Simulated scan of single mutants.
Amino acid sequence: MRTPMLVLLLGALGACSSIKGDYPSTPLIPNAAINVADGLTIALEDIVAGAAVIGVAYYVIDPLAPNWTLRAVRLDEDRYRIAMRMKRFHMGGEGEAMQLFKRQAEDMVRAQGYSSYTIARYEEGQESNWISERVASGDLILRR
């Protein structure tokens, strides 16, 4: 979803360079201020700038998104690999990888009619990108 937004933003910036003349003839944000209290006024342009910064920060951090993304791949009839990745900007959740792994395994056992599972392999680590991400992966063997 972020790639289309980036393309749209770059297209809009490219279009801005082709505008000629005195457009707009009046400012987009009027020269106004909000009188909050005696001696305290806030310029409307400061409010708009602050809202823009908060909006961008909310978009990047996305506090309502889950901390971990899980992907299960079937290796053979009873064997699965679960790969997990933690989002780059998060508020807690660093120690819950094994808990989520086991919860996913129990969900798979229930959904597919198995009686139990065995963890054949499990590992946690960090991938170093421009901002490091926590990752975890493991293999499950489902038992009838």
Score class of each variant (00 low, 15 high):
63 P>M: 00
133 E>P: 08
112 Q>M: 14
53 V>D: 05
122 Y>Q: 03
94 E>M: 14
81 R>H: 14
47 I>D: 03
39 G>W: 00
97 A>S: 10
14 G>S: 07
70 L>K: 13
41 T>Y: 13
38 D>G: 07
116 S>N: 08
100 L>G: 11
98 M>L: 12
59 Y>T: 01
83 A>P: 05
66 P>I: 05
13 L>S: 06
49 A>T: 09
38 D>K: 13
112 Q>E: 14
58 Y>L: 07
119 I>M: 01
55 G>Y: 01
50 G>M: 02
36 V>I: 02
111 A>D: 15
76 D>M: 00
56 V>H: 04
55 G>R: 00
101 F>D: 09
32 A>E: 04
95 G>N: 07
134 R>K: 10
56 V>N: 08
77 E>N: 12
87 K>W: 01
65 A>V: 03
126 Q>C: 08
133 E>R: 15
12 A>T: 12
96 E>Q: 13
22 D>M: 01
10 L>H: 02
117 Y>C: 04
65 A>D: 11
91 M>Q: 04
89 F>M: 03
134 R>G: 12
17 S>Y: 09
81 R>T: 08
77 E>F: 11
134 R>Q: 12
64 L>H: 06
75 L>V: 10
98 M>G: 02
77 E>A: 07
79 R>Q: 06
36 V>E: 02
21 G>E: 00
55 G>I: 02
23 Y>D: 05
